[in-house]
């Protein structure tokens, strides 16, 4: 029994062990990889996927999925950029962008709960429509020339005490999600909804409300991610965020969250996000072509998910 528990512990930490192993191996191979600067920039890059993946974790824990995050990101940044270009104070434009993201999530969530569409289909629909609206709104062209507001630059490029702001925000948001999922009534409801929706409903959990909120969170996090990108690129692109849902879902899966819902850990997603980032960054530094990178990434996810299935 004792050795069983130990094995479970090791499997619980499997993703973390894999991350450490990856970092060690790439560090040995590549001197450029093992610098503090590179690590900071790696984590900064990963935060963009990270915010989305945290929101995605909540949705997946309820037994759903959100394919619309990439399009939501594009839509909210497009509006934000045009607000800023139109002369709106940057802070207000950013808050509006976050609200647009939340709104996008609410629409997906309503299709799932009230519309009783399968989450995959519902968010496939919103993914397509949001991308279309973005294209129409921008007329297919980027929006740039956003001025030189301090806030706009700081969000993506600024640092506090030498640590990039996105990295700080990434850690703070992680702690917030950890707290909400582990310590609050809402978190317990998220897990219960995914574990057995019927039982949760008959135990007085409003499962529709719970699901709706997770989609709203997911939309809001996609928009937050978009703000970091907007700041870094100093422009909004209509194709921004294309395919981001896949990296986010991969991170969640790497972290050991069950795609059926009810089972999973936010710190697992945190580690999953870092694994994806280390792979992207490390393989780039080592000069591996992007074609091979995709294959390597796929294989790493396969191994992670297979080793997770044993328990």
């Amino acid at each position: 029994m004792e050795s069983n528990k130990l094995m479970n512990k090791i499997q619980d930490l499997g993703a973390l062990i894999a991350l450490i192993a990856l970092v060690l191996v790439i560090s040995i191979i590549s001197p450029q990889f093992r610098t503090i600067d590179n690590f900071l920039s790696l984590v900064r890059q990963s935060s963009i996927n990270g915010f989305i993946a945290f929101g995605m974790t909540c949705v997946i824990l309820t037994g759903g999925i959100d394919l619309s995050v990439g399009s939501t990101l594009a839509l909210s940044t497009a509006f934000c950029a045009s607000f800023i270009k139109g002369g709106m104070p940057v802070g207000i434009a950013m808050i509006l962008a976050l609200l647009i993201g939340v709104g996008c999530g609410l629409v997906s969530g309503t299709l799932v709960t009230k519309g009783r569409l399968q989450p995959f289909i519902a968010t496939l629909i919103t993914m397509t429509v949001y991308r279309g609206i973005t294209m129409i709104f921008m007329d297919g062209k980027p929006i740039s020339g956003l001025g030189s507001s301090f806030l706009l630059k700081f969000v993506g490029k600024g640092s506090l005490f030498g640590i990039p702001f996105p990295v700080i925000l990434f850690v703070l948001v992680f702690l917030l999600f950890f707290f909400v999922l582990q310590k609050t009534v809402f978190g317990r409801r998220v897990y219960a909804t995914g574990s057995n929706a019927e039982s949760a409903k008959l135990s007085g959990v409003n499962i529709n409300k719970t699901k709706l909120i997770t989609y709203a969170i997911s939309g809001g996090m996609a928009a937050l991610s978009g703000l970091i990108l907007l700041s870094r690129l100093a422009s909004a692109q209509p194709t921004l965020g294309n395919g981001y849902e896949l990296d986010a879902i991969a991170s969640v899966a790497l972290g050991g969250t069950s795609m059926n819902g009810g089972r999973g850990r936010i710190w697992g997603t945190f580690v999953g996000v870092l694994i994806i980032a280390v792979l992207n960054n490390g393989l780039n530094i080592m000069g591996v072509s992007s074609y091979y990178q995709s294959v390597v990434k796929g294989i790493v996810i396969l191994i992670a998910v297979l080793s997770d299935r044993k328990r």
């Binding site: 317990r188 219960a192 574990s195 057995n196 019927e198 039982s199 949760a200 008959l202 009810g262 089972r263």
Partner: peptide, 15 residues
């Protein structure tokens, strides 16, 4: 309908 079978007694009573 009655239980989340794959959860602990604690989580089930708490819900």
């Amino acid at each position: 309908e009655g239980l989340m079978l794959e959860e602990s007694i604690m989580k089930n009573i708490a819900i």
